[in-house]
Design a protein around this nucleic acid. Structure first.
Length: 272
DNA sequence: AACTGCCTCAACCGCGGGCTT
DNA sequence: TAAGCCCGCGGTTGAGGCAGT
């Protein structure tokens, strides 16, 4: 499934499957500093990857609130409906599916939904043909029959702008189920917490150090919730402190610029 | 057990658009 | 206006999984 790790000899950049160690580094850096510049990020995060690769890995796999696992029927219907109206605009479609990435939606379309839709279309054409034949045969009495609704499709292919099925209606679908699996295979997060743990955080501000230590459950969601709560008003708006002595040099390289010259992108949606 | 072929999906690639200089 | 940089998007690839023979 994953590609064999390889290395671009020209640039010295690693390619292929990401290792747990690389994931840890990327998570640690992005949660701490945000993605202020994907191109520069790998250099400071200690990663031998191109910025594009880091961005992709973060957005499609490591970012909080990624919803993994099977697509629900509602999600499937929404994808089909939106694809019918928008075509291959995967990022737009994915935007209507909380926790889903464009890559995931695209893959799911190509591997599953596309075939199903094509099969449905063929079935519908055949059904229409057979109905035409029947109606031709019964033409002499057709004027006496009540015409049933034309739609015999299983799936409701209503436009997204239809008042009956606006995208906002789907947005209001209850995705707050906390049993949702966000990121499976996150066993390494414990390692991540240990890794960035006690001495990695600023002890003078209300930072994740205390949260991690107090968080006995150590699950990703509660970590992020606590993290958000404690950092939303302080950390992300707080000027970067030059004292990096408590931070593992392996984990974070000193930032090359003054804090006012880089802006941390804080996407509130990530936490909701 | 060994082989084959299809399926899945993480990751790569190239392009276009927006922004800055 | 042109050039360069960066980001985001959509198309494509290919290794590993898995079912069938």
């Amino acid at each position: 499934m994953a590609r064999t790790p390889s290395c671009d000899k020209k640039s010295g950049m690693r390619k292929g499957t990401w290792t747990a160690e690389e994931d840890r580094k990327l998570i640690a850096y992005v949660t701490r500093y945000g993605c202020w510049n994907w191109r520069q990020l790998p250099k400071f995060a200690g990663l031998s990857r191109c910025g594009k690769s880091c961005r992709l890995r973060w957005l499609n796999y490591l970012r909080p609130n990624i919803k993994r696992g099977n697509f629900t029927q509602e999600e499937e219907e929404l994808i089909i409906r939106m694809h019918k109206n928008l075509g291959n605009r995967w990022s737009t479609i994915a935007a209507e599916l909380p926790g889903r990435t464009d890559n995931e939606v695209k893959n799911y379309w190509h591997t599953s939904l596309k075939k199903r839709v094509e099969h449905n279309q063929i079935t519908n054409i055949e059904e229409t043909k057979s109905k035409d034949i029947e109606s031709t045969q019964d033409r002499d009495i057709s004027f006496l029959q009540v015409t049933p609704p034309a739609s015999s499709q299983t799936l409701d292919i209503t436009g997204p702008f239809s008042p009956l099925s606006s995208s906002s209606e789907f947005s209001s679908t209850d995705y707050s189920d906390h049993s949702t699996t966000y990121v499976d295979d996150f066993g390494f997060l414990d390692g991540f917490i240990d890794y960035v743990g006690e001495k990695s955080w600023d002890e003078h501000s209300n930072t994740p150090t205390e949260i991690v230590q107090n968080n006995t459950n150590r699950d990703f969601e509660s970590f992020l919730d606590a993290y958000k709560e404690s950092t939303i008003d302080s950390f992300w708006t707080q000027p970067y402190e030059a004292d990096m002595s408590h931070v593992s040099s392996q984990l974070l390289a000193p930032l090359p610029m003054e804090p006012e010259y880089f802006s941390i992108v804080y996407d509130d949606d990530i936490w909701n």
